[in-house]
């Protein structure tokens, strides 16, 4: 095993990332065997539907975890954005483009709010994001009078938002996500913004003494996260169409599990955008695979819970080994 780890190609790609890809491939065959048929195009398209919105959520939360914080509000913020924009579109007759912009703006506002609470007011991210999670659920419910927000169905007027997920069988959502993944990767690894975010996660006090405004850059991580939750809302409504108030918690776990599984350290300072993307693919395939094997969808919660626990354990073990 040590010899394999020391191979130049393994060092370059990263041992953990190779293991993740192997896990992904193994899962495909295990689920195919378990369900008695090879998972086909429709299963994979089904998995991709989830990849779209979960991917944006996971990318966003990667920035926050890189600072050493956490954001438990991403799922409810995504649902809240979908609810508000949907009501503006359908009930108030806003044009589609404006409603979609509103999705992103709502996410961004929650990001700014979280950023102020954590970076400027010094609240622990764990607590403040719990607060904004409740706030997002409440705002969504109040704004829609606890009614579902029904976005126009395919073929109806104003249904163009569905092109963000699929267009004539082309998985545009995945292409969109890949483009944003590349942008996020460059932002985190090759720009000063990303460097500051990672350095804050690594040693906040040293960054502060260097003269860098840590509050500003930490807050920016939350704004990026909120904005990506808003973008996730566009693909979420593209898949779901009917958005229910009060939901969203389950997406937090999946997004955070994807990040940690992908190699982002819960201690901050280390983040892998590529790893997060592979983590999202694994979680999404897991959901489809469990359904294909004939289990009820609620089993997915059990398995995701076990995976989160294992990912956390592996993260702690691996940081202990690295030291």
């Amino acid at each position: 095993m040590e010899n394999f780890k020391n191979l130049p190609i393994v060092k370059k790609l990263g041992f953990n990332r190779i293991i993740l890809v192997l896990v992904l491939i193994a899962m495909y065959f295990i689920f195919s065997l378990g369900s008695g048929r090879m998972l086909g195009q429709s299963d994979l398209m089904n998995a991709l539907n989830m990849v779209d919105y979960l991917g944006f959520l996971a990318l966003g939360v990667t920035f926050v975890i890189a600072t050493g914080g956490i954001d438990f509000s991403i799922g409810p913020v995504m649902v809240c954005s979908g609810l508000i924009a949907g009501r503006l579109l359908v009930t108030f007759g806003w044009p589609l483009w404006l409603a979609l912009i509103m999705c992103v703006v709502v996410g961004m506002i929650f990001g700014v709010f979280n950023g102020i609470l954590v970076a400027f007011m010094g609240l622990p991210s764990f607590i403040s994001s719990m607060a904004s999670m409740m706030l997002a659920k409440g705002v969504g419910s109040v704004f829609t009078h606890v009614q579902n927000s029904n976005w126009p169905a395919s073929g109806a007027p104003n249904s163009g938002y569905k092109y963000f997920v699929s267009y004539n069988g082309i998985p545009t959502g995945l292409i969109f996500l890949l483009v944003v993944t590349i942008i996020c990767s460059i932002l985190l690894n090759k720009t000063l913004i990303g460097r500051y975010i990672l350095c804050i996660g690594s040693n906040r006090e040293a960054v502060r003494l260097s003269g860098v405004d840590t509050r500003k850059w930490e807050a920016l991580a939350y704004v990026i996260c909120g904005t990506l939750a808003g973008i996730a809302a566009i693909t979420y409504v593209g898949v779901i169409t009917q958005v229910q108030p009060g939901l969203g918690d389950e997406f937090n776990n999946n997004a955070i599990a994807s990040c940690v599984m992908g190699g982002t350290s819960m201690a901050g300072g280390v983040a892998s955008i590529g790893g997060t993307f592979i983590g999202v693919l694994i979680i999404s395939l897991l959901r489809v695979g469990i359904q294909a094997m004939g289990f009820r969808p609620d089993y997915q919660y059990i398995i995701t819970g076990i995976i989160v626990a294992l990912a956390v354990f592996a993260d702690i073990r691996s940081s202990a080994r690295k030291k």
């Binding site: 914080g69 622990p124 991210s125 040693n203 906040r204 040293a206 819960m266 201690a267 956390v312």
Partner: peptide, 16 residues
Amino acid sequence: YLKTCESSGYNRSLFG
């Protein structure tokens, strides 16, 4: 730098 490593915020785990 090494002095900053003595601060309470350094090397915290599980989201700080």
